[in-house]
Write a protein that binds this DNA or RNA. Structure first.
Lengths: 339, 339
DNA sequence: CTGAAAGCGCTTACAG
DNA sequence: CTGAAAGCGCTTACAG
C-alpha cells in the first residue's frame, strides 16, 4: 500500500462503474447524463476527493478557462482595485486570473505575455496600448483575444475598457487655470515607455496652450512613481529661476512625494505652491493637505474589461464594444485659488 | 491554406528533420544533444516562433514549475512588496507565480488553494497558519509543498518565513509605555479569521499586563482594514468614559484612518492622543503626523519564502529551515512623550 | 443516455 | 547521441 495518489478520472470511473466519458460528461454537461448516474458520480467524486487535473483538461479541450493580466506594477495601489474587480467578474463566470507584472518594461511585458500564453491563458488583459513590435506580432499571429485597459481610445481596432487620459489631464489643468494659476509645472511619469504618462503630459500641454499667452507651462519633469522621485522632481522644479504657483502631477504618489518634500523644505502647500494628483488612491486622502486629484474609475474599468474579454472569448464576435469611462476631478485642499 | 496554427513540437521536429524526442531534449537537456543538432533545432524554433505548450509539458513531466500564492488582499500595499520579492526570486529559478486572494475568508482560501493546485501549482505560499480543517486535510493528503509567511513560529512542523507578531506588538507597546502612556487602547484587525491580528492583540495585552497596575489596556476594538473603519473605531474609543492617551493600531491603514478622523473631530494627534501603526507601508510616511510604526521585513520575507519553497521543491528534504525575521519600531511623530 | 477509442502536446525510460 | 513508443489525465465526435 502506497501513498493514496491523487485520484484521476479513471479512478472515479471504476468506483462508479461507468466509463470515463460519462464521468467527464457528468461534470461538464450534467444535462446529458441521467439523473441517477449524475448522483452516483457526484457521490464517488466526493468520497474520493476528486479534482479534475487542469493540464489534462486543457490539453483535451483546448480551452483553459484562464485569463492573464499583465500590469506595470503591483507596488502601489494604482492597479489594485481595478484588478480585483476584474478578477471578481472573471470568477463569477468560472474563469481564473493569472497575474504578472512588467515593471513598465516592454520587453519584460513580452516575456510575461508569452509565459501567460504558454500557461494556457485563453485571453489577456493589458494596460495601455504601447508595446513592442514583437509583442504586437505575437498577439496578432496567435490571434489572442485581448482587452486593453487604463488607456485611451485607439485608432487601431483594439478592444478596450479605459478612459481618456488626455481629456482627464485637460480637465484637471482647466481646474488649475480656473483657480487663477498662470505659472504651471508638471511632474509626470516616465513617458518613454508609458502611454498613459505621455497622454497626461499632452493633456496638460494642450490645455495650457489653449490659454494663449496668459498661462505658461514652465517645465515638465519626469519621475518614476515613488515618493522619493516625486520629491526630487519637486526640488528640481523649485530650484528653477521662474517658479510655478501650481504643479500638476501625473500620479498621486508623485504628488505626495512633492508635498512631503515641500514640508521638509519649509515650502507651504498650497500657500506657496499648489499640487494636484492623478488616480485618487488612498494616499490622496491621507496626505495633508488632502489632494485635489483625478478619480480614475478603477473598479468599473476592471469589471468592464472582464465583461468585454469574456464576450470575446465566448462568442468569437464581441457583443460588447469598447468603452470609455468617465473620470472626474475631486476637489480637496492641495489646490488654492490664486489671489 | 489556413490560419498558421501555433506550431507544436512535431512541427519543429519535421522542420529540423529529427524526432520530437530530440527537440524535447534539446530544449530541456541540451547537454544530452550534439552541438550541431542543438544549433539546428534552435534555428528552427526561432524561425517557427515555437513556444512549448504548458499543459502538454505539465501532463508529461508531472511538474509545472509553477507556484501559487494566496494572500488575504491585494487592496492595500500590505503584501505587495513581499509578493513582488517572492515573485522575483521564483523567476530567477525559472518558476512562475500564480496569485489569488481570499479576502480574509478561510473558505475562500480553500477554494483558491484547490484552484491553484488544479492549475498544477507544484507548491504554495500561504499567509499565516490559521485555516479550516478541510484546507489542512487537503494540503496534507496531497502532500503539497507549502511555505507560510507573515506569521509566527508554529508549534506544528510547518515550514515558514515570517516574523514574530506577538513580539513585534510587545515591542511597540513597550515603546508606547516608555513614552509615559498609561491609558492605552487598541484598534486591531478582525481577529476571528486572522492570526496575525490576534497575535498583535496578544502582544499588546501581554506587554501592558507586565506593567502591572500602572498601565491599563482600556479597550480593544476590531475593524476591517480600511481608513473608514479605522476612523469609526477611533470615534468609538474616544466616546468611552475613560479616554486613552495612546492608541496602538494593528495596521497602518487603521492608524491613518484614526488620525484622519481625529483631524475631522478637532482632536490633536499626538497632542491629545498618540497613535501608532504596524507594517510601515508608504502611507505611514505620508500621513501628518508621520506614523510611528513597526517595520515588517516584507521583501526579505518574500525572498526567504521563495528560497525555502524552492528548496522544498527541488530536494524533497528542505535544505533551508524556517526563519524568523526581525522587525523594528520606526519612531516618527505620531507618538508623543506624556508629560 | 452511455461506451470505446482517438487525440490533445509533451517527456522519458528503453534500445540502439 | 538519437528514435520509436508509451503514457500523462482529460474531452469529444462517433456509434449504438
Amino acid at each position: 500500500m502506497n501513498v493514496p495518489d491523487t485520484p484521476t478520472l479513471e479512478d472515479v470511473a471504476k468506483a462508479a462503474g461507468v466509463s470515463t466519458a460519462t464521468i467527464s460528461r457528468s461534470i461538464n454537461h450534467p444535462d446529458k447524463v441521467s439523473p441517477d448516474t449524475n448522483e452516483r458520480v457526484q457521490q464517488v467524486i466526493n468520497a474520493l476527493g476528486y479534482t479534475p487535473h487542469f493540464a489534462g483538461k486543457t490539453l483535451a479541450s483546448k480551452r483553459s478557462r484562464t485569463v492573464g493580466a499583465v500590469i506595470p506594477t503591483m507596488a502601489n495601489a494604482m492597479f489594485a482595485s481595478g484588478l480585483q474587480a476584474f478578477q471578481e467578474e472573471l470568477n463569477v463566470q468560472g474563469y481564473t486570473l493569472l497575474v504578472a507584472s512588467s515593471g513598465y518594461d516592454h520587453d519584460a511585458e513580452y516575456e510575461q505575455i508569452r509565459k501567460l500564453i504558454m500557461q494556457g491563458a485563453d485571453g489577456l488583459m493589458l494596460i495601455g496600448h504601447q508595446r513592442t513590435k514583437a509583442t504586437r506580432d505575437f498577439l496578432q499571429a496567435r490571434r489572442i483575444p485581448t482587452v486593453l485597459a487604463w488607456c485611451n481610445p485607439d485608432e487601431r481596432d483594439a478592444l478596450y475598457a479605459g478612459f481618456d487620459n488626455v481629456a482627464a489631464a485637460q480637465e484637471i489643468t482647466r481646474e488649475v487655470l480656473a483657480h487663477g494659476h498662470t505659472h504651471i509645472a508638471m511632474i509626470a511619469g516616465v513617458s518613454g515607455s508609458n502611454d498613459r504618462a505621455s497622454q497626461r503630459i499632452e493633456g496638460v500641454r494642450v490645455e495650457t496652450a489653449k490659454h494663449g499667452v496668459s498661462a505658461r507651462l514652465l517645465s515638465v519633469v519626469e519621475a518614476v512613481y515613488s515618493l522619493e522621485a516625486g520629491g526630487d522632481a519637486f526640488e528640481q522644479i523649485m530650484r528653477q529661476s521662474t517658479q510655478p504657483t501650481a504643479i500638476i502631477c501625473g500620479n498621486d504618489v508623485l504628488a505626495c512625494g512633492a508635498i512631503l518634500r515641500a514640508r521638509q523644505l519649509g515650502i507651504e502647500v498650497p500657500g506657496t505652491v499648489s499640487v494636484t494628483g492623478f488616480d485618487d488612491i488612498d494616499i490622496a486622502q491621507v496626505i495633508e493637505p488632502a489632494l485635489t486629484t483625478v478619480k480614475v474609475p478603477q473598479r468599473a474599468m476592471g469589471k468592464a474589461a472582464a465583461e468585454r474579454l469574456l464576450s470575446l472569448l465566448d462568442d468569437q464576435i464581441p457583443t460588447l464594444g469598447s468603452i470609455n469611462l468617465p473620470t472626474r476631478v475631486i476637489l480637496r485642499h492641495s489646490l488654492a485659488t490664486l489671489k
